[in-house]
Nucleic acid binder design. Structure first.
Length: 185
DNA sequence: GCCAACGTTGGC
DNA sequence: GCCAACGTTGGC
């Protein structure tokens, strides 16, 4: 299921990683990283994830290199994810999910009938990757972006910055815990 | 629906 | 490799 709205793409080149992986070999077994992933609830909401088989979905449709690199190079099974509703009323964090499967090729890039189809991609040389995400905990209500911006403890959090467009973001442990505290309140 | 911010493309 | 034009994201 589409986790992201369609993003028309021009010329993906597999070798374009000017984006540094978030966690060079410094992660130890057992370390958990924290992320934020955006989805437009009209396309795929946290409620949709709760209803999905095994409360899990493939995060297909990401067509941005930095977001791809975060998923491919940064995410591990068990990492925690803030599920963010974008283009919504209100936009904000709807719940917690976790990485259920590490990165693998996004099948939609090969599918001519998909809006995410990428003619440059081949099975031998896939361009786009996805992870699987499983719902962990729904917040009683969405924490609006406005509340995130107003919270002093969340100063500097990427999603609160004006013009923050990246659909997969790294979140510091402190920011993650703070958002969870707000969500449980 | 508007439009600011930002990423991508392509001419040079 | 620069950068203007263009397309997209996403808050409001």
């Amino acid at each position: 299921m589409p986790a992201r709205r369609p993003a028309r793409q021009g010329k993906p080149t597999p070798a374009s990683p000017r984006v540094v992986a978030p966690v060079p070999g410094e992660r130890r077994p057992g370390d958990v990283l924290h992320w934020l992933m955006k989805s437009e609830p009209d396309v795929f909401s946290f409620a949709d994830l709760l209803r999905a088989p095994a409360r899990t979905t493939g995060w297909e449709g990401v067509r941005n290199y930095q977001a791809r690199n975060y998923m491919r190079d940064g995410m591990r099974v068990g990492d925690r994810v803030l599920f963010y509703h974008s283009n919504a009323a209100p936009s904000g964090v709807a719940g917690i999910a976790e990485v259920a499967r590490a990165a693998y090729p996004d099948p939609s890039q090969f599918d001519r009938t998909s809006e995410y189809f990428d003619p440059k991609a081949t099975r031998e040389a896939p361009i786009w990757m996805q992870v699987d995400i499983r719902a962990v905990e729904a917040f009683a209500q969405v924490i609006p972006l406005e509340a995130l911006k107003a919270d002093a403890a969340l100063t500097g959090m990427e999603v609160t910055r004006t013009g923050s467009r990246l659909s997969v973001q790294l979140v510091s442990p402190a920011h993650f815990e703070r958002v969870v505290a707000l969500g449980r309140r």
